[in-house]
Design a protein around this nucleic acid. Sequence first.
DNA 1: AAAAAAATTTAGATTAACCTAAAAATATAT
DNA 2: ATATATTTTTAGGTTAATCTAAATTTTTTT
Lengths: 220, 220
Amino acid sequence: MQNSFTEENYLKIIHALSGREGQEVSTNALAESTSTRAASVTDMLRKLADKGLIHYKKYQGVRLTETGEKVAINVIRKHRLWEVFLVEKLGFGWDEVHDIAEEMEHIPSDELVERLDAFLGHPRFDPHGDPIPDAKGNLTEPDYLILTDVSLGEKVLMMGVLDHAPSFLQHLDRSGITLGCVIEITEINEYDKSASVRINGSHSLFISLEVSKNLLVQRR
Amino acid sequence: MQNSFTEENYLKIIHALSGREGQEVSTNALAESTSTRAASVTDMLRKLADKGLIHYKKYQGVRLTETGEKVAINVIRKHRLWEVFLVEKLGFGWDEVHDIAEEMEHIPSDELVERLDAFLGHPRFDPHGDPIPDAKGNLTEPDYLILTDVSLGEKVLMMGVLDHAPSFLQHLDRSGITLGCVIEITEINEYDKSASVRINGSHSLFISLEVSKNLLVQRR
DNA sequence: AAAAAAATTTAGATTAACCTAAAAATATAT
DNA sequence: ATATATTTTTAGGTTAATCTAAATTTTTTT
Ligand SMILES: [Mn+2]
Ligand SMILES: [Mn+2]
Ligand SMILES: [Mn+2]
Ligand SMILES: [Mn+2]
């Protein structure tokens, strides 16, 4: 028995919301993320539990089972590989690919995924800097810093984004902030935590706390 | 209002069954092709008619409207472009791609199709020799011959297949019959219409009527 | 430890896409 | 021109995924 489009989406979202420690995810959090009502979530949770994809006890929240985790990670693998394809091969912008990948991630065919992976040269990260699980289902989240945790004067590498919204990504494009660029913090305003930064040692610009909060970076 | 996966499949099948002249398609023919029951087809026809995608009068069979035709051809365009991608870029065999393309054809995004088309170099034909509709929705079926219509001694080019089943395509692979190869008819057996042919002027082989019936060819 | 608030589940509907069985329309054969 | 057969439609259900409203459980506050 195959998992439906909808079931796969639930698993992927449970994976995302339960975070690194695999914490319990609440019905309401899922209703929010799936844009459905809590009652609909409860129905689906019962179904996923019956299929052995989640651990579920009424009123207690849910966690993925080993099987559920495997399915979720495979969907994530496909999503991120297709995003690489769309950007690297078809020339889409990183702000344009998420919704398309959201559809492509559900195409079933292990052979397809493996061939796509090879065609793309076994990429390790997607266009947003998110790690791509390997064929065996290993997904290691690199431990990046958020730019707000970086001190005045430090130089860091831009490694990823927390907000994947097109509007945010387009804002970064306009600011000249791209994956891999060097960000040096030249000023921090105590009042609102806004900052001035220098990009790749050349142009300077002002960024708000909202932007800093959504930038993943790494010390060099 | 978007068309569902299922609706798109119906339109594509109606297009295929109504042929060049856009003849009426019967409920039973659709039930057969969709692997559903006639009663289910009737339900769907009412819906497609309400959406203005088909002309439908009870007991009279159906034809596509202009709009329905556009949708059908766009699905066919996507199907065939993805098949080219799978064969040319991912290295799949022509016998392996149909089912995958059957899923990919429903991914909605005009931008995606146009970029894919450009990435593939605007191919005119898919891996089975079927013509790919252009971006404006023009689809011109070349008028090929069926190999059974070719006389003894003639040399023709292999241009396509009527049967797209993996088993048939694999049989052609084993026989060394590929798209574009030269087929010379060296013998026809009156009894069962089987034939001996020479491929690319080199190796000879015996082919049954069943095979000849499914090969599209062109005089040079 | 009650009471109030919040979260979750249950009950009962709805819609899309299917089904079977029965009725009606059309086509074919005598 | 009837009778028979075939095709198609209608009637009435089912399942997956959703919904609203009501009931229940858990959490938080007083
Ligand atoms: Mn994405
Ligand atoms: Mn991504
Ligand atoms: Mn095909
Ligand atoms: Mn094809």
